[in-house]
Simulated scan of single mutants.
Amino acid sequence: MMKSASTASRSSAVHMAVAFIAMGGWAAFANSAHPMPGPLIAGVVQGTLSALITLFLKRMIEALSARYPGSVGTWLPPLVAVLSSLALLSSVHWLAGTPEIVRTMAVPLSVTAVYATVYNLALRRVAAGGVG
């Protein structure tokens, strides 16, 4: 049982599915005051974007963190992650006609900012010879 839980926790597909359900559900809720199919479209769009962002975010942070030494490597990866997510989410939600774009993006962008910062700091700590 522990082995299968450990395997699942490292699975990109599991991470993508959780991101799709959690952030897609949030987007549907954030747009629930609007008539259908608005909330449903917002949920599917956000869920899909969150799944794709989850797939690439980790790798991008690792690459930037390793490439830039010193303080630049501390602040640049989270900044690029948040700005990339902001550009992608706002553009696609605008094209999809999401009624509550800012409200829809608030939680996913917050999660991106926290995850990118914490993960990048952990990478920097390990690279500096600290405990991982």
Rank of each mutant, 00 (worst) to 15 (best):
A63G: 11
V118G: 09
L49E: 02
V126A: 10
A51I: 07
F29N: 00
R124W: 08
Y119N: 15
N120M: 07
R103N: 00
V18K: 02
V45Q: 01
A113G: 02
L86G: 07
T104K: 01
I53P: 01
S50L: 12
A96D: 07
K58D: 11
L52R: 12
L83N: 01
T48R: 06
K58N: 15
V14H: 06
P99A: 04
Y68E: 09
V118K: 12
R103H: 00
S50R: 11
A116N: 07
T48H: 10
A87T: 13
L83W: 01
M23Y: 12
A27Q: 05
A63F: 10
W75M: 01
S84W: 10
A22M: 04
A30D: 00
M16N: 07
M105Y: 01
G24T: 04
V107L: 02
T74W: 02
P35W: 02
A63R: 15
T54N: 03
L40E: 11
A122G: 03
P108F: 04
S91Q: 09
Q46F: 10
P35A: 04
G25A: 05
T104C: 07
T98E: 11
N120K: 10
A116W: 03
V44R: 13
V14A: 07
A116Q: 05
R103F: 00
G97C: 06
S65K: 14
P77R: 09
A33H: 15
L64K: 10
I53L: 08
L52V: 15
P37V: 02
L52P: 11
P39N: 07
A33W: 14
I61M: 06
L83H: 01
N120Y: 10
V114K: 03
A81Q: 08
T117E: 06
G25W: 09
A28R: 10
W75F: 08
N31G: 09
A17P: 09
Y68H: 15
I41E: 09
A17F: 09
R59C: 04
F56C: 06
T117M: 04
R124I: 10
N31R: 06
P39L: 08
Y115K: 06
E100K: 06
S91Y: 12
W26M: 11
G38W: 14
V118Q: 12
R124E: 02
T104D: 06
A127V: 15
F20L: 02
V107Y: 01
E100I: 13
Y68C: 12
V72M: 11
A116E: 08
F29G: 01
Q46Y: 11
T54M: 02
V14P: 03
A51D: 03
P108W: 06
R59T: 13
S110L: 01
L89A: 03
A63H: 13
V45L: 03
A66R: 15
A28W: 14
G25S: 05
F29C: 00
V114C: 02
L64A: 09
R59G: 13
T54L: 00
T74Q: 00
V82P: 00
N31H: 08
P69L: 13
S85W: 04
G38C: 12
Y68G: 13
L95V: 13
V14E: 03
L95Y: 13
H34V: 11
A33Q: 15
Y115T: 10
A113W: 01
M23D: 09
W94R: 08
V82Q: 05
P39I: 08
I53V: 13
P35R: 00
A33R: 14
R103A: 00
R124S: 05
A87F: 11
W26F: 12
G25K: 08
T117L: 05
L64N: 08
G73C: 10
